[in-house]
């Protein structure tokens, strides 16, 4: 039986006319139809195999037990497994020797950067630039020391963090309870003069005597500070709480009590070493 071959005239048109051009309504190829059915079958199979249909709380779990969270957890453990060797090496290497090994240094600073952005950036800023009352970690001024050992101790035990027995601790007296208002004004002028800021010279001269009496035990004879006690250097260009006159007066009157949490036990040993290395190589490390 021979099939009748259809000519163009046998086909209807879609009825669309544009500029005299009409569009045939010709049959689709059969394989195309089969492909369409296959995709529908695939789609049904997919919704059975994977989480798909929304329910009131949640969705159908799917036969394969797939979840994006599970996938992320797998990826994380795969990365951890890949890093296991170099992490063990980092733990076994003394902090001073990390920089000498380029691979280890790269691992420590990359990991430390991630730790810093997760746990430290809230107070110290994402660029470690600090804020008023929160030290800038890029500069060369350190309250408690800026070498690797000092940094590691600070990170492990925190500052004035009372639940940690080894925390760094010191407390400045509230001179508002000890000195007269006028005396505090004189001290303010003297402290400003140490940092080469605008001040009243005569008042500062009075302040010098008061400073020698009350402040030198911690801040040093010439305001050079004392890292053992976390007492800031006063004779430099950097001010943790700004160099405004009111702020300096406020500090002397009410004192300050900056607290940093201890990270030992909250982040892993390797993370402590990483973030120590990272902070040290930001430019201020000693």
């Amino acid at each position: 039986m021979k099939k009748q071959k259809l000519t163009d005239e046998d086909y209807p048109t879609t009825g669309h006319v544009w500029d005299g051009i009409r569009e045939y309504d010709k049959p689709m190829p059969r394989w195309w139809l089969i492909t369409l059915y296959l995709t529908i079958i695939w789609g049904i199979g997919y919704t059975i195999a994977y989480p798909a249909w929304p329910l009131i709380s949640g969705a159908t779990p799917g036969l394969l037990g797939y979840s994006t969270r599970g996938e992320v957890a797998e990826e994380i453990s795969a990365v951890n497994a890949l890093n296991a060797d170099i992490e063990a090496k980092l733990l076994a290497t003394p902090m001073e020797d990390v920089a000498a090994d380029p691979d280890l240094a790269r691992f420590a600073s990359a990991g430390g950067s991630a730790v810093f952005r997760t746990y430290c950036a809230q107070c110290h800023g994402s660029g470690a630039q600090g804020f008023k009352g929160y030290p800038n970690l890029q500069d060369d001024d350190w309250l408690w020391g800026g070498d690797l050992t000092a940094l590691e101790t600070t990170i492990r035990h925190g500052i004035r963090f009372e639940t940690d027995d080894d925390t760094r601790y010191s407390e400045m007296p509230k001179f508002g309870e000890i000195l007269e208002h006028e005396e505090i004004e004189h001290l303010t002028d003297y402290v400003l003069s140490l940092g080469s800021k605008d001040h009243d010279t005569i008042s500062a001269e009075h302040g010098a005597a008061l400073f020698a009496e009350n402040c030198t035990d911690c801040h040093g004879e010439n305001g050079e500070g004392d890292r053992e006690q976390g007492a800031p250097k006063l004779a430099d260009a950097l001010w943790l709480f700004s160099s405004d006159r009111e702020e300096v007066t406020k500090t002397i009157t009410f004192s300050r009590f900056g607290v940093m949490p201890a990270w030992q036990g909250r982040i892993s040993e390797a993370q402590i070493k990483q973030v120590t290395f990272y902070v040290h190589q930001l430019g201020g490390g000693e």
């Binding site: 660029g127 630039q129 001024d141 950097l238 430019g283």
Partner: peptide, 18 residues
């Protein structure tokens, strides 16, 4: 250039860029 911070003031008042 480091944008965050754009510069760092050091204790002697000099300015450092990274």
């Amino acid at each position: 250039p480091d944008r965050n911070p754009r510069f760092v003031t050091l204790s002697d008042g000099s300015i450092r860029n990274a």
